[in-house]
Computed example of a mutant assay.
Amino acid sequence: MTTTTQINYRELAHGVLAGHQLTKEEALALLQAPDEDLLDIMHAAYIIRKHYYGNKVKLNMIINAKSGLCPEDCGYCSQSIVANTPVEKYAMLNKESILAGAREAINRKAGTYCIVASGRRPSDNELDGVIEAIKEIRETTQLKICACLGFLSETHAGKLADAGVHRYNHNLNTDQSNYENICSTHTYDDRVDTVQKVKASGMSPCSGVIMGMGESEQELVNVAFSIKALDVDSIPVNFLNSIDGTPLEGVQHLNPRKCLKAVAMFRFVNPTKEIRLSGGREINLRSLQSLGLYAANSIFVGDYLTTQGQEPTADWGMISDLGFEIEECAL
Rank of each mutant, 00 (worst) to 15 (best):
T4D: 12
T5G: 06
T5S: 15
T5Y: 09
I7V: 15
I7K: 13
N8L: 13
N8I: 12
N8C: 14
N8T: 14
Y9K: 09
Y9C: 11
R10K: 14
E11T: 14
L12V: 05
A13K: 01
A13P: 05
A13T: 01
H14K: 10
H14V: 06
G15Y: 04
V16L: 09
V16P: 04
V16N: 03
G19T: 05
G19R: 05
H20E: 12
H20M: 09
Q21G: 02
Q21K: 15
L22H: 02
T23C: 05
T23G: 03
T23A: 06
T23I: 08
K24E: 14
K24A: 04
E25N: 02
E25T: 11
E26W: 11
E26P: 07
A27K: 03
L28S: 03
L28K: 11
A29P: 01
A29L: 01
L30Y: 08
L31F: 09
L31H: 03
A33L: 08
A33T: 09
A33W: 10
P34K: 14
P34R: 12
D35H: 14
D37G: 13
M42R: 02
M42G: 02
H43A: 13
H43L: 10
A44T: 02
A45D: 00
A45Y: 00
I47F: 01
I48K: 03
I48H: 02
R49A: 00
R49G: 00
R49S: 01
K50Y: 07
K50E: 11
H51N: 05
Y52L: 00
Y52N: 00
Y52A: 00
Y53E: 00
Y53R: 02
G54K: 00
G54S: 04
G54Y: 00
N55R: 03
N55H: 08
N55W: 00
K56T: 11
K56M: 13
K56E: 06
V57C: 02
V57L: 10
K58N: 07
K58M: 05
L59P: 05
L59V: 04
M61T: 15
M61Y: 12
M61W: 08
I62W: 09
I62S: 12
I62T: 11
I62P: 04
I63Q: 14
I63V: 15
I63D: 06
I63F: 12
A65V: 15
A65N: 13
A65W: 06
K66T: 05
S67P: 02
G68M: 05
G68A: 04
G68H: 01
G68Y: 03
P71H: 08
E72H: 04
D73F: 03
D73M: 01
C74S: 10
G75E: 07
C77Q: 11
S78P: 07
Q79F: 12
S80Y: 09
I81T: 07
I81L: 04
V82I: 15
V82H: 10
A83D: 04
A83K: 04
A83L: 06
N84G: 14
N84I: 08
N84K: 15
T85Y: 14
T85Q: 13
P86M: 06
V87Y: 07
